[in-house]
């Protein structure tokens, strides 16, 4: 056996400290001359350190192998199917929203041309979607002597699966960035509602009006 061959497989026993004293000393001396063996020892050091955390049971002859159940794959496939279905809903929801906006804009155009220019009521302004949602809304914002009157017109897609007891909040943010909740209401799928509200802020002081979920996620926003 040549010198090189004699040392070739000693890296692991050296790292684990199982060589006898003489062989250990010889191999240590060899390491300073042999880059390959030194690199091999270095590559095993972290493994040796990690072995220190191992449980004795892991070394058993019949170490346990845990198999996932046969149900995992069917569950994965149906989870993916469910997600695709929901995404389709959101996309079609967005299409409905777009159609609703078109109707709204048309109505506005008709109304604007018919109404007197000095009408004190604010024009309904369509709110913009912050995230995909089954809700569309417009807001009438009118300056009044006590502050600002805000009337929301909200409509909900009926086919969407709303969480039971879902509520929305109307939140106003002023130009300094502080927000106040003006009120909340319950979701009525498939229906349109008008929600009258107001704030002491003047119209100039209002930066934006948002509709948020009960948990605080903004759905729609109107910047003034």
């Amino acid at each position: 056996m040549t010198g090189e061959d004699r040392f070739a497989h000693l890296d692991a026993a050296y790292v684990l400290g199982t060589l006898d004293t003489d062989e250990r000393r010889e191999f240590a001396a060899h390491l300073s001359e042999c880059d390959d063996c030194a690199a091999s020892v270095a590559s095993l050091e972290e493994v040796g350190r990690l072995l220190g955390s191992a449980s004795p049971e892991a070394f058993a002859d019949d170490a346990i192998q845990y198999e996932p159940s046969d149900l995992l794959l069917p569950r994965l496939l149906s989870a993916v199917r469910e997600q695709r279905r929901r995404r389709r809903w959101l996309v079609s929801g967005a299409a409905v929203l777009a159609a609703a906006c078109l109707v709204l804009v048309t109505t506005l155009l008709v109304r604007t041309t018919n109404s007197t220019p000095s009408s004190p009521a604010g024009h309904p302004l369509a709110m913009t979607a912050v995230v995909d949602s089954p809700v569309s809304a417009s807001a009438e914002v009118t300056a009044v002597s006590w502050g600002t009157k805000i009337t929301l017109h909200c409509s909900y897609e009926s086919s969407f699966d709303y969480p039971p007891g879902a509520t929305y909040d109307l939140v106003v943010t002023d130009r300094q960035g502080s927000s106040q909740t003006l009120g909340s209401w319950q979701v009525t799928p498939g229906k349109q509602i008008s929600y009258p509200s107001g704030t002491a802020l003047t119209k100039d002081q209002i930066a934006s009006i948002s509709i948020t979920t009960g948990s605080g996620t903004a759905l729609l926003r109107l910047k003034l």
């Binding site: 026993a13 684990l16 199982t18 060589l19 006898d20 990690l50 072995l51 955390s53 191992a54 449980s55 004795p56 049971e57 892991a58 070394f59 058993a60 002859d61 170490a63 346990i64 192998q65």
Partner: peptide, 28 residues
């Protein structure tokens, strides 16, 4: 991590590590 990796070794490889490393046996 290490338990998973040790358990995934072949039975022969696990056995030699069990003797030398876990039980601290000398090579002989």
């Amino acid at each position: 991590l290490i338990d998973t990796a040790v358990a995934a070794l072949s039975a022969e490889h696990r056995a030699v590590l069990r003797e030398t490393y876990l039980r601290g046996a000398s090579v002989s």
